[in-house]
Amino acid sequence: VFWTLARVYLARAYYVAAELGIADLLEECPRGVDELAEATRTDPRFLYRLLRALAAFNVLAEDDQGCFRLGPSGQALVTHAPGSVRHWTMLVGHRAWQQGLALALEAMGQGKPGFELAHGRPFYAYLREHGDYARTFVRGMSAWSDWHAPQLVRACDFSRFATIADIGGGNGSLLIEILQRCPQVRGILVDQPETIAQARPRFEARGLDRRCTLVSADILQAVPEGADAYVLKHVLRDWADPQAVQILKACHRAMPAHGRLLVIDALLDPANGTDRLVKLIDLEQMFILPGGLRTQKELEGLLDQAGFRRIDVRRTSIADAAILEAVKR
């Protein structure tokens, strides 16, 4: 139990290193503490204690001259490394996020997310008012999506669709992977204006901007028509049941009679002692956002309320990403 609780300090060390860009500074060559302290504008004594702790967990390594280099797991904090978790670490370690977790006890008593109690507004409203953190959020979520996307494309045949709308698709990681793997498919990316602005250069850089329309929209109200497949990846988990049904109904209105809805999300196992990671993700959701992870039965209940019928379910290699396929009733 002690070691489990003590890892909170390791998580904080990861966060500080991510914010300071330590891994980027060490990517090409080892550096001494004084040089790193000058580059990061930190106190050399405090910085050394941080680096020493990270070296104890193989994030970094220290040589006989007191210089540090990246350790086996340190590469994951390099900004542009494949599978980088730097921005995700900055997202969940940020003061705003941590203040929400700090009110976990109050959240339990009031039945509201700790984030909302801490900041006086829901998470997404806070993002609209804090642009820097909103950009960190998009980059952090993108890191996970970049990792998920190839596995999801292997698990599902997206080539059978002519046009795919990714609703709440962030900066487009999944849609980019689909379009690159399926050259005959066209795409529609739908998200908030700030997110779409970050996504546009990614499509342009890959030459996909002519095959994908980027749309700013409030997905609680309406989504664009014109697709024969609508994807909701890790979207419904962020919303309480009434809002989740609203999003599903918006998709239902936009979707043609022959269209397909693909809900990509965790399927919470009602049994205890299983899917531990998924249960922890659900706690994270509870303290930050009004939604949560759901069982297959609960998700199918939402689909039914919105006028859909589930026709298939596929597990993937990702713990919190099964694929429920549905059609209009």
Rank of each mutant, 00 (worst) to 15 (best):
T4V: 15
V8D: 15
A11M: 04
E19D: 12
A23Q: 07
E35S: 04
L36S: 07
A37L: 04
R45S: 03
A53S: 02
V59R: 05
R69C: 09
L70D: 00
T79W: 05
S84M: 06
H94Y: 13
F115R: 14
E116T: 11
G120R: 11
A125D: 15
Y133C: 06
Y133R: 07
A134G: 13
W147V: 15
Q151F: 02
R154V: 03
R154M: 01
A155H: 11
D157C: 07
I164R: 03
I167K: 00
G169A: 04
G172D: 01
Q180N: 00
C182K: 02
L189Q: 00
L189V: 04
V190T: 01
A197V: 05
C212G: 00
C212M: 01
A217V: 03
I219C: 02
P224R: 01
A227Y: 01
Y230C: 04
Y230V: 06
V235C: 06
W239A: 15
D241N: 09
V245C: 09
H252W: 13
M255Q: 04
D265N: 10
T274C: 11
V278I: 13
K279A: 08
M286I: 11
P290W: 05
R294H: 11
T295D: 05
Q296P: 01
E298D: 08
L299R: 08
E300R: 13
L303N: 11
A306D: 11
R309N: 09
R310M: 15
A319K: 15
